[in-house]
Design a protein around this nucleic acid. Structure first.
Length: 509
DNA sequence: AAACGGGACAACCGCACACCG
DNA sequence: GCGGTGTGCGGTTGTCCCGTT
């Protein structure tokens, strides 16, 4: 029918579909009447047998197919073959533009819910849609294009508003420019402004970098944007009621799941502000990852909602090698990593940051703020910190080898102060608001609790990406030797002090 | 013309839920 | 309530085809 394999050709040189026989169907491999079940491509004969069976007995009871028809295929395989290829109502051929758009829309709303998407697209199968999407994603990522067209982003956001019974933003908020590219995990130059890092800090113009260069940022680089602009935008997040089963892979950020997942599995993102010391890895974890959530929930060293780094997670797997999952608000909010039902907001607990910054001025966002004179100061301070760390490290390492802070820590706080405060207004009742995580208070707490002099707030993933210890030098070496860091450096490093940063980077390497 | 790489597609695998006895 | 079976779903892998070098 839909497929004719070589074995098919061999088996059915005269096209035996019209008179399917078990012998024909099962003669093509290591199969037999009661022998091992056949795998691999289906033959026309097998298709015919299956069609005949279904016609006679109807769908379902797939395991009976083998028994009754002698087809050497497991029931599961039969079901799949029927559903994906033999069903009479299947629509064959390429997706129409209309269907393509519909898929994008649905994905923006549902995420990787292929079956549900298929239900919205008559004649199409989940497998078909899934393959299409995966191919498309790869293609677009390679091309540096946004996964979701802006209009669909907008549409998704808008459609979600009424059904979002969580904390939602007002319509105006939804239309805040900051929210626009939520699903655009690429950072095209035209949208880079949405980072709004101090509004102008990273303006391509101000930074004297070619706007187009940002187009080269791979999908992974969307993190900066995604975390900045999309996370607070819960309104976009899918509120589709959780399907009957809860899967760890379910993503609350339908698109982020894929994009960030790809991004992070490809390598944690390191951003360098040029001062050598900002390294960030954003790690989302599934809210079902109780181990991680409970771990950091009980980790006294962490700020509320921050992600436990390595606490109780002995994984030695590099963060960038891990499959990363985003928290899902599709599920009950109470199931969010917050230890208490009264604190259902996921916040950024899953967001880990490796950030290092000069010590005291958390309110000044030393690393990203243009007011910060101190790249050199930071480096000097870093040097000092390293010295201190050698002393303190022995003590620190064992108990708090990694200091966790909310994403972007003080720089974020500085950069998005206003916005987060605004969000905080709405989110605070939920316990851990995003802004609270980013707030100076949180950092203060963190600092007082954990930060060693020098404020080397190295945010590490819960996967143990980095630890602060006495081997700082080697850590830095690792950072700088990593391609993604170099990429990030290329992307972000030159923004402030291009030449300076490059030289520093060079030196560091 | 051969080698290579990527896209498209089909199929499998593992997991989880639903149902039933 | 429990275990077995059936089914559905999402992720991953394998294979073929085609364009490029």
């Amino acid at each position: 029918m839909s497929m004719t394999s070589e074995s098919d050709e061999r088996m059915m040189p005269n096209n035996g579909v019209d008179s399917p026989s078990v012998d024909d169907a099962n003669s093509g491999g290591n199969v037999g009447g009661n022998g091992p079940l056949k795998k691999g491509p289906w033959t026309s004969a097998e298709d015919a047998i299956l069609v005949e069976y279904v016609t006679k007995h109807g769908e379902g009871n797939w395991n009976a197919v083998q028994k009754h028809s002698g087809l050497a295929r497991c029931g599961k395989s039969c079901r799949l073959r029927w559903a994906n290829h033999l069903r009479p109502d299947l629509k064959k051929g390429a997706f129409t533009p209309e269907e393509e758009r519909r898929i994008i829309e649905l994905h923006a709303k549902m995420g990787n819910k292929w079956a549900r998407m298929a239900a919205e697209l008559p004649g199409r199968t989940d497998n078909e849609i899934k393959n299409y999407w995966n191919t498309r994603i790869k293609r677009r990522q390679r091309a540096g294009l946004p996964i979701y067209p802006p209009d669909i982003c907008m549409q998704a956001m808008t459609e979600k508003q009424p059904s979002d019974n969580m904390n939602t933003f007002s319509s105006a908020e939804v239309h805040h420019p900051d929210f626009m590219p939520v699903n655009n995990f690429e950072i095209p130059a035209v949208e880079f402004k949405n980072l709004e890092l101090n509004q102008q800090l990273y303006s391509p113009a101000l930074l004297d970098i070619p706007a187009g260069s940002l187009l080269d940022i791979p999908a992974s680089s969307l993190l900066a944007q995604g975390l900045h602009s999309s996370y607070p935008n819960k309104s976009l997040l899918s509120t589709v009621h959780p399907s009957k089963r809860l899967r760890g892979s379910e993503s609350f950020f339908p698109s982020l799941n894929t994009a960030i997942g790809n991004a992070l599995t490809g390598g944690s993102q390191y951003q360098s502000d040029g001062s050598l010391q900002i390294a960030q890895s954003f790690v989302y974890s599934s809210p079902y990852d109780h181990s991680s959530t409970s771990d950091h929930a009980t980790s006294s060293s962490l700020i509320p909602g921050s992600h436990a780094v390595l606490n109780g997670n002995p994984s030695s797997e590099p963060a960038w090698a891990m499959k990363l999952e985003l928290p899902s608000l599709q599920t009950h909010m109470g199931s969010w990593g917050s230890p208490s039902p009264s604190s259902p907001l996921p916040c950024f607990e899953s967001v880990d940051i490796l950030i290092q910054t000069p010590p005291t001025e958390h309110t000044q966002s030393c690393n990203l703020s243009p007011q910060n004179s101190g790249l050199l100061d930071a480096v000097l301070y870093e040097s000092e910190t390293m010295k201190n760390s050698k002393i303190d490290g022995r003590q620190q390492t064992s108990r708090a080898s990694t200091v966790e802070v909310a994403m972007m820590a003080n720089s974020t706080h500085d950069l998005h102060d206003t916005e987060w405060e605004a969000y905080d207004e709405q989110l605070s009742p939920l316990g851990h608001s995003s802004s609270s995580v980013f707030s100076g208070n949180s950092l203060d707490d963190l600092h007082s609790a954990e930060t060693i002099p020098g404020c080397r707030i190295k945010e590490a993933s819960n996967l143990g990406l980095m630890q602060y210890d006495e081997k700082v030098e080697s850590t830095n070496e690792m950072i700088f030797s990593r391609p993604d860091f170099l990429l990030a450096s290329n992307c972000f490093g030159p923004m402030k002090h291009p030449s300076k940063d490059h030289s520093l980077l060079k030196d560091a390497i």
